[in-house]
């Protein structure tokens, strides 16, 4: 088992290096730091001195990957590649283009993101499984047909509509909760309710349909026929045998997104003014802050790779047939 884990981790490292190289090429080779400076400082009427100053403040005045004039190990370490890309491996994100410490911002902002993302995941999962199982119970009837049609209709509605409609209906017409904002501690509950509800409802359509297919696939298997032959009632077959076996693909499918919950949801956080990592990223994109976007790309990929790792491990835990090769 331990050698398996070690091997999986060893496999993840080259991927992380690949991500790092891709971001480096995207952000520093395709466009030079001069171009970035020009975009940040204003289009054309900008002097070379101002550009040099902007670059020096952010450490972009170093050579890209090889510092020939420097001596010893500094040939390598005094470069943009080392200071801006290699350091990401140590989770040293450096400073944003506006001079703030990115690492500190991330550690502050991930909690509001989690406060939204975790309830959405848990409530959504429970609700989706319950409803999908009910639909699977009534398979082949009119209820099933119309439930699927409703699911397709719900999938076809833009996520933006759920947010805007929910804000308008609940926040503005009914005045039940504040439209946007955030608070610390227990006071944050009233700000979280609406985004969580909208997140859950928005995911129901595709979720129910997807889980329904998983349940239906299970229902056609041999052990279900055996269970029925034993004389078990249909509901006992469905809620005990089928549910247990169908939970394997469902839960292992959830594991991969668990680490990424830290990243938050871009659109939801932006609409509701939640100071999480999602709105942090959006702000950075709109302010064209390359340092933050770069850090978030790396962090997001890292968390996703951890998720893949956890998925592999969870398979070995829940399904003993998976051999550790």
């Amino acid at each position: 088992m331990i050698s398996y884990i070690v091997r999986r981790i060893a496999y993840a490292i080259p991927i992380l290096i690949g991500v790092n190289i891709i971001t480096f090429i995207l952000f520093f080779v395709v466009n030079s730091p001069d171009d970035m400076a020009r975009l940040q400082l204003g289009e054309r009427r900008v002097t070379q001195e101002a550009i040099d100053k902007w670059k020096a403040e952010r450490g972009y005045d170093r050579p890209l990957i090889w510092n020939a004039p420097a001596d010893g190990v500094k040939k390598f370490s005094e470069t943009i590649f080392f200071t801006n890309s290699i350091r990401l491996f140590m989770f040293d994100f450096g400073q944003s283009d506006s001079g703030r410490d990115i690492g500190y911002d991330i550690s502050q902002r991930m909690w509001p993101s989690l406060a939204i993302a975790v309830p959405v995941l848990v409530i959504g999962l429970l609700l989706t499984i319950t409803l999908a199982l009910t639909v699977a119970f009534f398979r082949g009837t009119y209820l099933d047909t119309w439930a699927v049609v409703l699911c397709v209709a719900m999938m076809s509605i833009s996520g933006l509509f759920y947010i805007i409609g929910g804000q308008y209906l609940v926040g503005k017409l009914l005045h039940l909760v504040p439209i946007s904002g955030f608070d610390s501690g227990i006071a944050s509950v009233k700000f979280i309710l609406l985004p969580v509800a909208i997140g859950v409802v928005g995911g129901l359509g595709s979720g129910i349909r997807w889980y329904r297919t998983i349940f239906l696939e299970e229902i056609n298997k041999d052990y279900v026929r055996t269970a029925r032959a034993k004389g078990l009632s249909e509901s006992a077959v469905l809620y005990v045998h089928v549910l247990r076996n169908a939970l394997i693909p469902i839960l292992t499918g959830v594991v991969v997104i668990l680490p990424s919950l830290f990243m938050g949801s871009l659109i939801t956080e932006a609409f509701f003014g939640i100071p999480g990592l999602g709105s942090y990223t959006i702000d950075a994109i709109q302010r064209q802050d390359f340092a933050i976007v770069r850090s978030m790309v790396f962090l997001g990929s890292f968390l996703y790779i951890i998720g893949l790792l956890l998925t592999d491990l969870s398979y070995t835990v829940v399904d003993p047939r998976v051999r550790l090769q």
């Binding site: 991500v19 952000f27 466009n31 975009l39 990424s260 990223t281 790309v297 997001g300 996703y304």
Partner: peptide, 23 residues
């Protein structure tokens, strides 16, 4: 490697670079 980069962020980075190119 490509799929482990969050899609929105990759698109955002590419769009930012496109902005730079167009300027």
């Amino acid at each position: 490697t490509l799929s482990s980069i969050p899609g929105v962020l990759l698109i955002a980075s590419a769009a930012l670079l496109l902005d730079v190119y167009m300027t």
